[in-house]
Design a protein around this nucleic acid. Sequence first.
DNA 1: TATATGCCGGATGAAAAATATCCGCAATGA
DNA 2: TCATTGCGGATATTTTTCATCCGGCATATA
Lengths: 163, 163
Amino acid sequence: MRMGEGVEWAAHACVLLSALPDGTGLPAAAIAAYHDVPPAYLAKHMQALARAGIVTSARGAAGGYRLARPPQEISLMQIADAVDGSEPAFRCTEIRQRGPCGAKPEECTKTCGIAAAFWAAERAYRRQLEGVSLAAIVASLTGRPDPGKFARVKAWLEQNANG
Amino acid sequence: MRMGEGVEWAAHACVLLSALPDGTGLPAAAIAAYHDVPPAYLAKHMQALARAGIVTSARGAAGGYRLARPPQEISLMQIADAVDGSEPAFRCTEIRQRGPCGAKPEECTKTCGIAAAFWAAERAYRRQLEGVSLAAIVASLTGRPDPGKFARVKAWLEQNANG
DNA sequence: TATATGCCGGATGAAAAATATCCGCAATGA
DNA sequence: TCATTGCGGATATTTTTCATCCGGCATATA
Ligand code: FES
Ligand code: FES
């Protein structure tokens, strides 16, 4: 069971966008350059974030991406859903209805206990991620290591942001 | 993020094995026929269950599979791990160390907050599945619909089991 | 011992999904 | 007008999953 690597890219992109000065936009190409990932592919993921309403996009010269909401109101779950899809990981194919002793459809009014257990576990997973906001992530990242780092990022942003 | 469909097969296979009379074994081909799934492929998953110590296998005439432990001591998590692998779904590629403002390795002594959040959610998922025993699944399945069903399964097993 | 049964593991192939790129189009500001 | 930038679709490449097959070995039964 593996999650697409685009989720890591998108989450870090959102962290970067959270440091973007108000009223400016950051082009997808700049976000890709910052993280050293393929620009065309990251652009796809940014489009997914835009469709999900997590970031807003402005086309044309002086355009780019910025967060659609304050970081407190963006959760990791929303980012992962936008990029990786929100379908359940466990897919029940109603195997209990197949074979020589298969249950008849009218006997299967309630979901199979196995599927129910997996889906309950996925709900626990989702509940956990819904409780982690982008703001909390940023706080855990910027607080620590070296104040110069934040300044360098800010300088890079001012050079590469539009607006 | 999707889980292999072999997990559903293996879980149902374990449910079936839990109804197997003591001292008998059920060949992989019989398990496949019971669920109407490709025999050769299910055999692979059964081998994985055997390697994980969830079922034991007996070769030769009158051989087959049976549970290695009582159903109370088998969890859905163990089955999923055996069949689908136990690697974390979220893979951190240390993207924070890349690009023009990348952090130096010596700054990255602790795991990135994003990866930590995803892995914490996966722990919640695992904790949930570890709490569901095969015995609980069987109870939720056999209690309900129709007593004749259980008898039919038993009869099928007696016809197809070895031992 | 001979034979049939049945698991084991590796090799192989087909199908699907993830990864990655490109291009034409529309929108926007200079 | 013209350069810039996001949008969406089409396409190509790589990786993973799904599935089958076969030779080898172990075991029970006759
Ligand atoms: S029938 Fe799909 S999990 Fe039981
Ligand atoms: S560097 Fe991998 S999740 Fe942050």
